[in-house]
Amino acid sequence: MKLIELYLEEIRHRLPPRNREDILREIHSVLMDTLEDRDSNTGQAFDEETIKSVLKEFGSPRKIARQYGAHNYLIGPRFFPLYILVLKIVLIVITALNVLGVSVVFISQSGFGTGMWETISTILGGVLNTLFTGFGIVTLAFACIERTTPEDWGVDFEKDWQPEDLYKEENQERIKLAELAVGITMNLILIAALNFFLDRIGIYYLSDSGWVSTPILNENFKPFIPWITAYAIMDITLSIYLIRKEYWDKTGSIAQIFINVFKIAVISAIISSPGIITIDPTTWQQLFPNAELTAQGLTHTVNLVLEILMGIAIFGLSVDSIKRLYLTFIKGRHTVIEINKD
């Protein structure tokens, strides 16, 4: 019976929310009727082989979900999970960029003034506008994909589906889509910022001649850019691989450990190099003319704080690598899926 619960669960997360519970209840009822008809041991639990053969006959959860959703929705079960993922990424990027914009205004003006509220309300208005636009574009794109992709797309893959796969998937640690989506977004922002907008990473302030920015990353940092870009690309590649797989497998875990070791090496090299941040004395003087702390003193403190943060990151990466090693090679099996039994 466990196999049936797993089967229904696999169908559940592929169904659009409308009528989800009712459809599942019906599929459950049909499965039980079919099993009862096939199994001669009335009153006893159905044997595993009968369950497997009935499930095989019904077909993969993906197929069942598609049959119940075909043509009734703007975006059907085939593309629904991918649609949600892309939507999350797009909305997170838009929100992150806008929050960054608000932060820059706040930090560079070191407090709220009258003009500041005006700027922020304009930005917030823009946030809503861009969020709706992003939502609209993604939805429209997926609606077009839904209507132009042939009905039998991916059917060959589904023919190979076996009920035993449900156990295999159960024994794996499911990936966290939202986490991976945020990871991909952050890495893309990191790659773009370091390779194309390095001079924009800095202190922003409003001078007499308008908005001015002073870069804070110095020459010591530049040799690390290709290495940081490399691990960001590796991270993105692994995330895409995991999204396709839907769970952590041995290859994914080994790749994650390798990337973690690579990151630790890069971060260690950054820590052992001279400070990578320099606060420009002229900017500092202009922003805080009466400050006791000199630009040189601040540079030293910021680099020290950064080194501590990088040390914490190394610790986190080490813990993550050990956890993955343990889950993959020692424990052998991973987190169990929680089955909703209603």
Partner: peptide, 27 residues
Amino acid sequence: YGYSLMKSLEDQGMQIDQGTLYPLLRR
């Protein structure tokens, strides 16, 4: 109910796959 309908159709020579029948009934 769905399964009895499927059986009844089958007995009369009209075989319908359950994956077709149940979504059709809902439609």
